[in-house]
Nucleic acid binder design. Structure first.
Lengths: 233, 233
DNA sequence: CAGATTAATATGTACGTACATAATAAGTCA
DNA sequence: TGACTTATTATGTACGTACATATTAATCTG
């Protein structure tokens, strides 16, 4: 008789997940200790621990040393979005990517930008506005501020040829990022550049990065009408 | 002389991350093998593996058996959102939560709803519209469809007293969720219920859940103007 | 009986061994 | 020389041991 195959951590995870889904463990409930689950399922504690790590990352359980493992009392929906550089996104849709620099100027950071970075004092920044196109039609209007203290080399980049978006992603790694979504009505230049009626509802992706605690860039990417962003499956 | 403390996986992760940030490993680059990194850093291969697992989850590296570890050529920004039930979100803001059922009707799923679920044939569903309030002002307008094949018990719930949002989160776990954001202009009933001028730009969170491959619910939560959703830090 | 202290506990972690396996490189063959 | 097969390799994993540590429960003291 051959040895019984060992239980994998993914099988353990799916078993526990099924019990949570079946409300065998309901919101607020405490789960058995790792050691007891291991004995019950016929595997090692480390295998249960690995499965729980995954469940915790998904928000299905909460772990506490000594305190044990619980199903959260107030579950949240956890959704992860992968936001590519715009060129890749357009090309991934099978569309032709286009880029156009609208404006580029050195200026002191305005209050709204300072607020996004959490800055008290203005600092010299490069203000870049650019349009990304898909199949020759406006797709994303980008309004970006780049801190010249951390990123002086952006001044050497020909932003008429290369989007700041891509340059930064390749040359300027960050250690912290803040991402937000909101909606705005198309007005003035936004309506013009995106070639859309004034008043159209537009989705805005705001993304701010820091290296350590020093600001790098903050961008508002205003999407053409109809744009929708989906979490990864 | 006391034994040197062992390197922790978080220290290994931070070291590798710093090297990626410093472009010691640039986009497209292949990293040294786990075993070599372990020797280089003076720790176990399992410790390096644990650190890499975390870096991979953050999207900073890509792992392939035999193929090794690479810095992605096309890095993406990975942002994770935790979406609580509306009551918790309102209370977390220090506001008073209120709830009002607008309408409740059994109907066959319309094409747009079938599309969201990936259904070919319509099925009987409960269509619920409700308003969530913060400090007595409209906050989120919820337009929801609940599949009666998987969730017949929703018919017994007094939705005038309890939001479907909370009932489902507590009683109906799901195994798959699809989350999307887009923007709409406030029109007709939406403008009325949210008490906002027609034409206002509104952020919409769309969330669809399945148990196995069977639909549970799909909801469009239309936020009052000014609403913004932020990724977790 | 409340606050402080101590003990116990359940999870977290470093490691090493042995093995699994996906993926790449090398070799073979027509 | 290209297609196919085989070998090699680098990561993935199960486990067990030993220890670390955050947290909770129990105990002590005034």
């Amino acid at each position: 008789m051959t040895a019984e195959p060992r239980l994998s951590w993914t099988e353990v995870r799916d078993t526990i997940r099924a019990r949570i889904l079946a409300r065998h463990y309901a919101p607020g409930d405490k789960l058995p200790r790792d050691e007891d689950l291991a004995r019950n399922l016929g595997c090692a504690r480390a295998t249960v621990h690995r499965a729980m790590q995954d469940l915790a990352a998904a928000g299905l359980v909460e772990r506490r040393r000594r305190g044990g493992t619980h199903v959260p009392n107030d579950p949240v929906t956890r959704a992860t979005f992968d936001i590519p550089v715009t060129r890749r996104e357009v090309e991934a849709r099978g569309s032709l990517y286009g880029y156009r620099l609208i404006s580029r100027a050195i200026a002191e950071s305005p209050p709204a930008v300072m607020a996004r970075f959490g800055l008290q004092d203005p600092s010299p920044m490069l203000h870049v506005r650019a349009l990304h196109l898909a199949d020759r039609r406006p797709y994303i209007l980008e309004d970006r501020w780049i801190d010249l203290a951390t990123t002086p080399e952006i001044l050497e980049v020909d932003l008429a040829q290369h989007s700041a978006n891509e340059w930064l992603v390749h040359h300027k790694p960050y250690s912290r990022v803040d991402v937000r979504f909101h909606a705005v009505n198309a007005e003035g230049e936004i309506a013009r550049h995106l070639d859309t009626p004034r008043g159209s509802a537009l989705l805005v992706l705001e993304r701010t990065t820091w290296i350590g605690s020093a600001p790098i860039t903050t961008v508002q990417s205003v999407a053409a009408p109809g744009y929708e962003v989906a979490a990864q499956s």
